[in-house]
C-alpha cells in the first residue's frame, strides 16, 4: 500500500510555478529523503501533503485518503514537523504535549501515559516540568518530533528535521528517525544534509525547480550518476604484475597506481570497469588465481553529493 501518493501535483504562486506535475509514490514503512536545493519546492510539497496548502492542480493521497476531499481523515494519518519550532514560552514540556493531544481530541485519561511514552522515546523525561522555552534547540526539535507523534500517525512529514542542529543533536534526531522507521512509520523528510539521506533513507527523490529530476534507491541513483564503476585494489606487493594483468582484461580502463609508499600504506591500484557484478567477480577470481596477494578489492562508492550534483543543474524556480 502506498503511504503517500502525489499525482500530477502542481502549485503556482501567481505566475511562478513552485511545483510542476509532480508524481511520486512512497510505500508504507519507507524512509523517503526529499532532497533539493533551496527554493526547489520541498517545503511547498510537504505543506500540500499536510493539507496546509491547496495544490493548484493534482491530487495527494495519504494511505489512500485524498487530502483534498477528506482533510480531517488524512490529518489523522499525518504527523507534521515544519522547519521551525513553534514555541509557547509559557508552557511546560508536558503541557505542550498535553495541549496538542487535546487538539487531536485524545481523551484526557489517555494523555498522561502517552506523554510519558513519548518523552521517554525522545529522551526528555527529565525535562518534563521545564518551560519549553528553556530547552536547547536540539531538545526543542526532539519535542517537536514528539508533538508530531502525539496522535500516533502512520506517516511522518518532516521538513528539514536536522537543520541548524549541532552534530550531536543531528545524530540524536537521526537515531530517532531510525527508531521510528523500525516502529513501522513511513517517514517523508526533506533535507539538504546529504549525509542524513545516505544514512537512513531507503529511497531518495531529488527535486529541482519544482520537478523531480531523479528518484529511486540510493544504489540505483549512484549507478545512474555514473555508468562506470571505480574499483580500488590493494595488494601486499607485485603491483606491476597486477597492472599488466588488468590491462589485458576487457571492460577495464583508466588504471592508475595509487602510491601507497608515500603514505606508508600498501601499494594499490584503481581502475574503471563498465561491466556488471558477475564481471567484477570474474576479475577478482582471475587476480587471485594468478597468485597475486590481494589484500582488498572494493568498489569506490560515489557519494551522494556527486549523485546530487549530477542530477541537478543548479536551477531555482
Amino acid at each position: 500500500m502506498e503511504a503517500i501518493q502525489l499525482v500530477d501535483l502542481t502549485r503556482c504562486y501567481g505566475k511562478r510555478t513552485a511545483i510542476e506535475q509532480l508524481n511520486l509514490s512512497v510505500a508504507s514503512g519507507e524512509v523517503f529523503g526529499f532532497v533539493g536545493p533551496n527554493g526547489a519546492g520541498k517545503t511547498t510539497t510537504l505543506r500540500i501533503i499536510a493539507g496546509l496548502l491547496p495544490p493548484t492542480s493534482g491530487e495527494v493521497y495519504v494511505n489512500g485518503i485524498s487530502v483534498r476531499q477528506s482533510l480531517s481523515s488524512a490529518r489523522r494519518q499525518i504527523g507534521y514537523m515544519p522547519d521551525y519550532f513553534g514555541v509557547y514560552p509559557d508552557l511546560r514540556v508536558w503541557e505542550y504535549l498535553d495541549f496538542f493531544a487535546g487538539c487531536y481530541q485524545i481523551a484526557e485519561s489517555e494523555r498522561p501515559r502517552m506523554i510519558e511514552d513519548l518523552l521517554d522515546l525522545v529522551e526528555l523525561t527529565h525535562r518534563k516540568d521545564d518551560l519549553v522555552d528553556r530547552l536547547s534547540r536540539g531538545m526543542k526539535q526532539r519535542l517537536s518530533l514528539a508533538r508530531a507523534l502525539i496522535h500516533d500517525p502512520q506517516v511522518l512529514l518532516l521538513d528539514e528535521p536536522a537543520s541548524g542542529l549541532d552534530p550531536r543533536a543531528r545524530v540524536e534526531i537521526r537515531e530517532l528517525l531510525v527508531e521510528l522507521a523500525r516502529m513501522g512509520k513511513t517517514i517523508f523528510f526533506s533535507t539538504h544534509i546529504l549525509a542524513d539521506v545516505a544514512e537512513i533513507c531507503t529511497r531518495v527523490g531529488i527535486l529541482e525547480a519544482g520537478r523531480l529530476v531523479a528518484e529511486g534507491r540510493l544504489e540505483e541513483l549512484r549507478l545512474i550518476a555514473s555508468s562506470r564503476r571505480r574499483i580500488e585494489l590493494t595488494l601486499l606487493d607485485q603491483v606491476e604484475r597486477a597492472e599488466a594483468l588488468l590491462g589485458a582484461l576487457p571492460g577495464i580502463t583508466h588504471i592508475e597506481r595509487l602510491d601507497g609508499n608515500l603514505t606508508g600504506q600498501r601499494p594499490a591500484l584503481s581502475f574503471e570497469f563498465s561491466g556488471d557484478d558477475t564481471g567484477l567477480c570474474g576479475i577478482l577470481s582471475q587476480l587471485v588465481q594468478s597468485g597475486l596477494p590481494v589484500l582488498q578489492f572494493r568498489e569506490d562508492q560515489h557519494d551522494l553529493e556527486e549523485v546530487f550534483l549530477r542530477a541537478t543543474k543548479g536551477i531555482v524556480s
Binding site: 499536510a50 507534521y80 514555541v87 509557547y88 496538542f100
Partner: peptide, 13 residues
C-alpha cells in the same frame, strides 16, 4: 508571529 498557527492547523482542531 510565533509560527504556531500551522502547528494548530494540521491538528483536528
Amino acid at each position: 508571529e510565533r509560527q504556531t498557527l500551522d502547528l494548530l492547523r494540521v491538528t483536528l482542531l
